[in-house]
């Protein structure tokens, strides 16, 4: 498995030098394709103070196919599906934009940037996106409420 060497290398690098606000470990000792991430909500965002559990699945074709990322902690965000999947599909996470040299660390940096600055024009939740654009106050309020309710 050529992919193993790559994944092990990424895992080593990410643990010695984790991206800001992220703690990463394998979900199960013997499965290097399933990563557990705990991400702190970025400061100056409604998510600040929250701790979000994100699961990353590396498909068996990784790194030729992008990793699949899901929020296991409920989050009120235009780019995360508001269901039990909590899926995010944005930028480099899309098959046609993903390039094999891209790394999980880049993905996590992107996710954190999107938490800090939602991308309503690329939304999966049209209603939340619309609120974000037209009534920021109400959006911030709900997002903060959800942090208190689910992400503590």
């Amino acid at each position: 498995m050529a992919a193993n060497k790559r994944i092990m290398k990424e895992l080593g690098e990410i643990n010695t030098n984790p991206p800001p606000g992220c703690a990463i470990r394998l979900a199960k000792e013997d499965d290097i394709n399933l990563w557990d991430v705990t991400m702190d909500g970025p400061q100056d965002s409604p998510y600040t103070g929250g701790k979000f559990h994100i699961q990353i699945v590396l498909p068996k074709e990784y790194p030729f196919k992008p990793p699949v990322l899901t929020f296991r902690t409920k989050i009120y965000h235009p780019n995360v599906t508001n269901d039990d999947k909590g899926a995010m599909c944005l930028g480099m996470l899309r098959a046609d934009e993903w390039k094999p040299p891209n790394k999980i660390v880049d993905v996590l940096k992107l996710v954190r940037a999107v938490l800090a600055a939602p991308q309503p024009d690329d939304a999966v939740e049209a209603g939340i996106a619309n609120e974000f654009k037209t009534d920021r106050k109400a959006f911030d309020k709900t997002a903060q409420d959800w942090v208190k309710k689910y992400a503590k």
Partner: peptide, 23 residues
């Protein structure tokens, strides 16, 4: 592997890009 994934996996042909990041 990259080309096989694009052609077989994604059915792409006319716009297969260099695997280089951002290229």
């Amino acid at each position: 592997q990259y080309l096989a994934q694009k052609i077989r996996g994604e059915g792409e042909a006319a716009r297969i890009k260099c695997p280089g990041d951002g290229c």
